[in-house]
Design a protein around this nucleic acid. Structure first.
Lengths: 163, 163
DNA sequence: TGAATACAGGACTGAACCAGTCCTATATGT
DNA sequence: ACATATAGGACTGGTTCAGTCCTGTATTCA
């Protein structure tokens, strides 16, 4: 259901990698560090740049950095940068004889909005900061899923997640 | 990100249609009512049947019914019936020289679990009953009712991508 | 029993999409 | 100027998806 393309996976890995430091990373270096093929790395970073998730600096000593602090970048932003806007049902973009006109199904299809909203909200709550420091907190979160882990995460990113 | 295939859309429409009544619906009738091509309707219903979302009755007077009451069937169940299990990152199913061995990225990738969980939970909360009677409660939650809701929704979330 | 009805299960195909590469600009620092 | 790095497309092989069709099996009813 949640189709995670490889490119999206790459994007998350790369963005998370950038979250670790503040200095610009060249695409080539990131490719080496993440073991993602270099041309592909470059392609993904370009997409992230266009989407405003990362900032780029050309020329010598250039490279990529996060466009904003890690805790301000929701994971859904990264995903959308690659996969495009949330897929709504075709109901709305078919200008042909749409079912909506004469079928009660339209109400059904309208509910996709609700589904999308739920997913969107769920993803927005996870930031790059959460992804960047999985060792101390996130994996514990999965294992225990308690408030203890929550406190640990908040302690690890002292800025406090703005959500 | 949430890739909604056409088949999945069909599945939700069909399942919702079944939620309205208790009598068996032949695939052919459902196809007519929903305007979905008949062979495709049949295919989707078969998948739903195999997944245990709908029950089937062969022979004359046969057809499909919901396997359980509509309010007991979560929408993610329907989606999974078509799209298969939630896609986790390939990190786990690549038995080659996985990055996990020597890269901190593994922690990053493990976080997909977290993302998946959030999405899963969000979808489980929406049942077929919610989809079947949007006029009574669901659309009220979102906005209002009928076409007024449609307009209101389009107005406030202008992400209508035209494919 | 036999005919009609309706689902079950796969095989198949054309089209769309995706991962990945490569090439040519353009910007930047030394 | 020159080396470095991103920007932006064009292109390709492979995979997946939407949709159809065919054969088999179960069920009802005359």
């Amino acid at each position: 259901m949640l189709r995670i393309s490889k490119m999206t996976d790459y994007a998350v890995v790369l963005a998370t990698h950038l979250a670790a430091t503040k200095e610009p990373h060249a695409a080539r270096d990131l490719a080496l560090e993440t073991q993602i093929p270099e041309p592909t790395t470059s392609k993904v970073l370009k997409q992230l740049s266009r989407a405003g998730v990362v900032a780029s600096q050309r020329g010598a000593k250039g490279g990529y950095t996060l466009a904003r602090p890690a805790h301000e970048i929701g994971i859904e932003e990264v995903i959308q940068a690659i996969e495009g806007p949330i897929a709504v049902t075709e109901c709305s973009d078919e200008s042909t004889d749409s079912l909506c006109e004469y079928e009660p199904n339209c109400g059904v299809r309208a509910n996709w909005q609700r589904i999308n909203h739920a997913v969107h909200q769920a993803l927005s709550q996870i930031t790059l900061a959460d992804m960047a420091f999985p060792f101390v907190d996130t994996l514990i979160t999965i294992a225990r899923s308690g408030k203890e882990a929550e406190r640990a995460r908040l302690g690890e990113s002292p800025q406090g997640d703005a959500h």
